[in-house]
């Protein structure tokens, strides 16, 4: 028995056989925020063979209150979360293969990222991305574990495409109402509890056991919890997981795509394909417009008037201080490229 995993192997639910299985598995985590960090750390400590973690954001001070993989240094240098997470996770367990990808998870790259993994963990903070996850996992028949948390409550549901209801079976629209962590807040215990449910289901699946068919909901502050067995809600005509599925969220768009980050006065602009884009060339160009420019090799940050631009290697840009998507698109074309 390897010392590192000895306590986990003693646990009857896993044992040495389960431990050996974990070492052969590949888990994809979408989102390296609070839930993504917590799940990733548990899975890396548990000795899963390979973890790929994808995130489109960079570390800020407001993250440090609950996003456990990040430090003040990461916030000071505005490191992309995927890169910062990769470093921390490798320092925790160098035997696990860890790949951090500082990109958005979207309809165009979803299939390629998901096709070779055993299971996907939801660490996102929005339903737009979750419905892309839902469609791609249904299409490729990969299980995933939904998790969400806000204020002091959270919820978790494991989804086995075709066998248990998918997200689309359970609700059929993109919720716009309801708060986000940036508007209503969140506390660490709600994150940890949600991630604990997610990781537990993930470990069960990876060691060849059945995941729970119950959707669990809790409020850790009010000490309330509830579970509902949802299998009956599997929709035989679902547009994502039935035999007639047409995967509505995997339809690819063309050109510049803008997306408003809820509650943050930030718009993300993502180019379709830009040839020969380089942060260095942009750096040289933008220095003639503003003196407030800094970078860390992974991204470039510059300020023009009251707007802050954060540009990633693939040309994707977060514009802070704006909530109008068409204005953001114009600014992108003006300063970064078409």
């Amino acid at each position: 028995m390897e010392e590192r995993y000895s306590r986990q192997e003693l646990f009857s639910g896993i044992g040495s056989e389960g431990q050996a299985l974990l070492a052969e598995k590949h888990v994809l985590i979408i989102g390296a925020g609070a839930l993504g960090s917590a799940n990733a750390e548990m899975l890396v400590r548990a000795g899963v063979g390979k973890i790929t973690i994808v995130d489109r954001d960079y570390v800020e001070w407001s993250n440090l209150g609950r996003q456990q993989l990040y430090t003040e240094e990461d916030a000071l240098t505005s490191l992309p979360k995927a890169k910062a997470a990769e470093q921390k996770l490798l320092a925790i367990n160098s035997r696990v293969k860890i790949v951090g990808i500082a990109e958005e998870f979207h309809a165009e790259n979803a299939e390629q990222l998901v096709e070779s993994v055993d299971i996907l963990i939801d660490g996102t903070d929005n339903f737009n991305t979750r419905f892309i996850i839902n469609d791609v996992t249904c299409k490729l028949n990969v299980p995933w574990v939904y998790g969400g948390c806000l204020e002091s409550h959270g919820t978790c549901l494991a989804i086995l495409p075709g066998k248990t209801p998918c997200l689309k079976c359970l609700f059929d629209y993109l919720p716009q109402e309801g708060g986000t962590c940036d508007t209503l807040g969140i506390i660490g215990p709600a994150v940890q509890m949600t991630a604990a449910y997610q990781t537990a289901e993930c470990l069960k699946f990876l060691t060849g056991q059945l995941m729970s068919p119950e959707m669990v909901y809790f409020d850790v502050w009010e000490r309330q919890s509830s579970s509902v067995e949802v299998t009956k809600l599997l929709d035989p005509e679902c547009s994502s997981c039935s035999s007639q599925a047409d995967y509505p969220f995997l339809k690819k768009e063309k050109g510049l795509r803008t997306y408003m980050l809820c509650g943050r006065e930030t718009v993300q602009v993502r180019p379709g394909q830009i040839e020969g884009f380089s942060l260095k060339a942009l750096n040289d160009r933008i220095k003639q417009v503003t003196s407030e420019v800094r970078g860390n090799g992974e991204l470039l940050i510059f300020q023009i008037n009251h707007l802050r631009f954060v540009v990633f290697k693939d040309g994707r840009t977060l514009i802070h201080g704006i909530s109008d998507t068409s204005e953001a698109q114009k600014l992108y074309q003006q300063y970064i490229g078409a």
């Binding site: 989102g31 660490g123 903070d125 929005n126 998790g147 969400g148 919820t155 919720p175 708060g179």
Partner: peptide
């Protein structure tokens, strides 16, 4: 009654 609902944050 048992009531559960989806939550967006994370």
């Amino acid at each position: 009654l048992e009531i559960v609902h989806f939550v967006g944050g994370g």
